[in-house]
Design a binder for these strands. Sequence first.
RNA 1: GGGGCCGUAGGGUAGCUUGGUUUAUCCUUCCGGCUUUGGGAGCCGGCGACGGGAGUUCGAAUCUCUCCGGCCCCA
Length: 482
Amino acid sequence: MLENKKGDNFSEWYSEIIKKAELADLRYNVQGFLVHRWWSTFIMKKMFEMYKKEFERTGHKEVMFPLLIPKSNFVKEADHAEGFGAQVFWVTEAGTRHKKLEEPLGIRPTSETAMYTMYSYWIRSWRDLPFKRYQEANVYRYEPTTRPFLRGREFFFLEAHNVFETKEEAEAQILEDMEMSKNVLYKELGMPFLGFKRPQWDKFAGSVYTCAADTLSPDGRALQQPSSHFYGQNFSKAFGIKFKDEKKKDKYGWQTTYGPAPWRFMASIISIHGDNKGLILPFSLAPYQIVIIPIFFKGKEKGVLKECKKVAKLLKKYRVHIDDRPEYTAGSKYHDWEIKGVPVRIEIGPQDIKKKQAVVVRRDTSKKHAIKQKDLLKHIKKLEKEILDTLRTRAEKNLKQNIRSANTYSELKNKIRKGGFIKVNFCSIDLNGEKCAEKIKEELQAEVRGERIDKREKIKPGSKCVICGKKASHVVYIAKQY
RNA sequence: GGGGCCGUAGGGUAGCUUGGUUUAUCCUUCCGGCUUUGGGAGCCGGCGACGGGAGUUCGAAUCUCUCCGGCCCCA
């Protein structure tokens, strides 16, 4: 059992789990840069793999771009340069004598300005389009405050950068992005989210508009997961990404990007699925999917261990680990693997050998069953699916319970205190709604997350903005955020 | 970016107010040995620390400044 309870003190619980599950070591002395231990590294690699599969399925090709961006590239798109300016680390000198570089090199805070100089060389014809590329890249941002897996100065990231012939194709990509988010986050990882089109005042620097998936943290705050940006022709004009169309005319490409961050998925995995015993991992992510604990009794160690190996062999299609450390008792091993979130534990002792069975304990419900060895593989297969379903169902129930509506400002004020998403009528998610959003920010410390894009929500005629009382044009969701 | 708290072995702590009998407390981890294992076992022995720098002082874990790092609340 952890010292902090998830429900009582979420922040402390979160820090404790990171330490005790050996996800990260916080003792490295550079702020915002995290040392990842093997357990979290393995989990993140799995999430990268899942995403790479999605990218390949949807016709993206993988590339690798340099970390450093010359200043002259970085400033080409004015809004982007302004939006990211304060967050860029600059490399300005080299060597023991600190020789000054001729041009400052920015460490990518995101890779638009690295990639698009090359895109302008590569894209010449309508035949080159659609042009869909992605890369696995760490990005670096000088963030004022940092938290492990939530906000870092080094951020583990995938970014897709696509170019299309038409606006319509580009906007369709935003929906495909949302589908990828759903496939990975919801289907594979059991993490439900809401898809939003962000208000204009909250869009990515350089974009026309931004869409994003928000998960809900157990402390009631929204956490932005993958985001997509529709760039229109902002970057293609700034970087000269032009092609000849079928009528030999020069045209600028229409662009989108999509950025899922497995690093931040870790934050949601921990907080959404974890409990007071520690992390809970679905099979797809668990470095060890099954841990076998031999129950040694004096003089019977060899037989028990042999039986464990036999069972491990039956389950060889899974990542099985036999924890045969003799210097620890069974009980302490249970705790170790519970904190780390191993989805299934199997106990094998002299009793089980006699009965040709194994004791199977699932991490999500703590239910314990003795299973005959001949049925074991089938049983685990079932558990693999059931555990993911349980996690997803639990999370979904929690999300649904935390979406509420408010018709008046005082109702909003009241409900937002408990956290979650509050659905309201709102004047506008264009810039002229910003004043109302600022009021929400100042008085309620909450944000307008935007209107849903994964679900059509029409506004009823005659509806009024919950803040200013003027005619409402959007149904928006308001939440406190990370 | 604003505010608050904090930094003593691998982890958690006592000591700090009032500078000096401190050879720096206790628990845990770790190492060696014995013993034990169905929900955090026990005994014996051992290793291991005052975040960095500067200052005040006869003397600094203790006071001052500064840097680095961490946590919490808010933006």
